[in-house]
Design a protein around this nucleic acid. Structure first.
Length: 541
RNA sequence: GGCCGGAUGCCCGAGUGGACUAAGGGAGCGGAUUGCAAAUCCGCGAUUCGUGGGUUCGAAUCCCACUCCGGCCUCCA
């Protein structure tokens, strides 16, 4: 069963074979070294769920390859160079986006809701939103950010999540190379342009020909006397008045918005690497231009597999601020949805299908995750009971058990589930199909009253494996704030007291109160327990 | 105008020629359990896959036409 992905470069499903395969000829992914570069966020504002769909798709890809035994080096940029807002004059007219962000910050400061010390400093503004992004990404469990946090030096962090403003000299040097190799020229206006006619493959990724591009009916490839071809794009633009600017051989100015990914990806992953991901809007022009730049500069094939995710819709419409269907991660967590729910909502639809995001969908996600977490709890308890008796210690933390997890021989049912899960994932990351395999497996376990130790241990191990990809079961939920926790415990006690006196009306009232605090109680023969809900109380009509 | 996707039950969403009397999740309904809940258990629900043709022994799956929806074509994940 070959692993296949849809490669945008060739517009078809292709078997995935890593450039640096593992030792086993029957399974090239196991033990392979795989480089992935993902187009990351721009840090002019808070990232929204649409952005995160793209980042999470890359995360699922990366985690699945890890599950298959690959050593993945995952790189994601964070664009902090201000690019332009105006699409009518594509070659860098209009206002700088960071300039807009700076204005907004200044306005906030005036209104007393200052977010940073000096809102005039574009670097500080970019840094503010970069930190906000990292926070959101941690909540959603992006592996690349975990790598970043675990990295011990600034340089290693910079390889994992590079920031363009820290690599300007490298951009300049690549532009010089492109000029030297005849792929770039200085226009009559002093701007350095890429000469797309020097790179005949330009347009391959999006299925465009140069002919079509020059006659684009969108009318957006504006004729400019300074350029040789209307679709030539700029690499460096001298502009002494630009907010962020750096010295260069072509005058003080700023880089084009494609060069950063060419430079930073090759810097971390080498001149040729396996996978490059992004949103579908990146295909043209961004990735098209990246290929032209990178291959123009090195003369080598740049990326083997290009993967792009479809855009996200909200309630059947394009997400936009004016329609009121624009969500950030903090919007949703503030409403009481746990980040795991958001993660599930964004990954459970296959990346190449358009995703219609709804609040209803988040409730469904919460229900599905709760089922799996309940099962995990049951399995863990069954295993812990025996381990404790045998003095084997805590199974849930690897390394403390006498039998390391990876040496376990799995039960046939578990093995079958993993096989089916992988089969679906091998089919261009069919997450929905993979989840079906998981639930089909989970249901009988749920129903089973008593679990044998062997069975529970094997099942737990299997669930952990698939959760390496899903990242929603064996992760901590958002903790209640201290004061809220005390309030909850107090209420639970009051309820227990009321119930002991058979005052069920009072008890039920308190249960409702707890529900509105995001907490549900469970009465068992052993007593009352409570836990946080993954989704807020549904407003009843 | 060019290029590219999509349409499956109440909702989300697999399935791309025969094991489909269509996976899985959610919501719903009836019953068991419960002080009532939650969780769990048992049971129920698409003779049908946007519409119309065609190919085939056989189609959700292939072909043609049509309708509708969405994306990209130098802001965008």
């Amino acid at each position: 069963m070959p692993t296949s992905f849809y490669n945008t470069l060739h517009h078809r499903l292709e078997d995935f074979v890593p450039m640096h395969p593992g030792p086993d000829p029957a399974d090239a992914i196991k033990g392979s070294q795989i480089g992935i570069y993902s187009c990351g966020p721009t840090v002019y504002d808070y990232a929204h769920i649409g952005n995160f769909r793209a980042f999470l798709f890359a995360d699922v890809l990366r985690r699945y390859l890890e599950l298959r035994g690959a050593h993945v080096t995952h790189v994601m940029n964070m664009t902090d160079v201000g690019h332009m807002t105006d699409d009518q004059l594509a070659d860098g007219a209009g206002r700088d986006k960071l300039e807009v962000a700076v204005e907004k910050m200044k306005e906030n400061k005036k209104q007393g809701k200052a977010q940073i010390e000096n809102p005039n400093d574009p670097f500080a503004v970019a840094d503010f939103f970069a930190q906000a992004f990292l926070q959101d990404a941690r909540l959603l469990g992006l592996g690349v950010v975990a790598d970043y946090d675990a990295a011990s030096t600034d340089e290693s962090k910079e390889r994992i999540i590079p920031r363009p403003t820290r690599h300007i000299p490298e951009f300049i040097s690549m532009i010089e190379t492109l000029i030297a190799r005849g792929h770039a020229y200085i226009g009559a206006d002093g701007v350095v342009y890429y000469d797309i006619r020097s790179f005949p493959a330009y347009g391959k990724l999006s299925g465009n020909s140069l002919e079509q591009l020059s006659h684009g009916a969108g009318g957006r490839t504006n004729e400019q006397a300074a350029k040789k071809h209307p679709a030539d794009f700029f690499l460096w633009k001298p502009d002494r008045h630009h907010l962020m600017r750096w010295p260069s051989p072509w005058g003080d100015g700023y880089p084009g918005w494609h060069i950063e990914c060419s430079v930073m990806s090759m810097r971390a992953l080498g001149q040729s690497f396996d996978l490059h991901t992004g949103g579908e809007d990146n295909i043209h022009p961004h990735h098209e231009c990246e290929i032209a730049q990178s291959e123009g500069a090195t003369g080598k094939p740049f990326v083997k597999y290009w993967m792009h995710t479809r855009h996200l819709m909200v309630n059947g419409e394009k997400m936009s601020k004016s329609k009121g269907n624009f969500f950030t991660i903090r919007d949703l967590t503030a409403r009481g949805f746990d980040p795991v729910v958001i993660r599930w909502g964004l990954i459970s639809t296959r990346y190449r299908e358009p995703l219609n995001f709804t609040i209803q969908g988040l409730y469904e996600a919460a229900a599905a995750i709760t089922t799996l977490r309940d099962l995990a709890e049951k399995l863990t308890a069954a295993v812990a009971a025996v381990d404790e008796a045998a003095g084997e210690g805590d199974f849930s933390s690897p390394g403390t058990t006498s039998a390391p997890l990876h040496e376990l021989v799995l039960e046939p049912a578990d093995q079958q589930m993993l096989t089916e899960f992988n089969l679906a994932m091998d089919d261009d990351l069919n997450v929905s199909g993979a989840l079906a395999a998981l639930f089909t497996w989970a249901n009988p376990l749920h129903k089973q009253k008593k679990l044998a130790y062997r069975q529970a241990r094997s099942a737990l191990q299997s669930l952990k494996k698939v959760d390496h990809v899903l990242g929603v079961v064996f992760v901590d939920l958002q903790a209640l704030p201290q004061d809220r926790q005390r309030q909850v415990e107090d209420l639970v006690q009051k309820r227990t007291a009321a119930r002991q006196q058979k005052d069920f009306a009072a008890g039920d009232m308190i249960r409702k109160q707890l529900l509105s605090l995001g907490v549900e109680v469970k009465d068992t023969p052993a007593g009352t327990t409570w836990r946080s809900r993954l989704a807020p109380e549904k407003l009843s009509q």
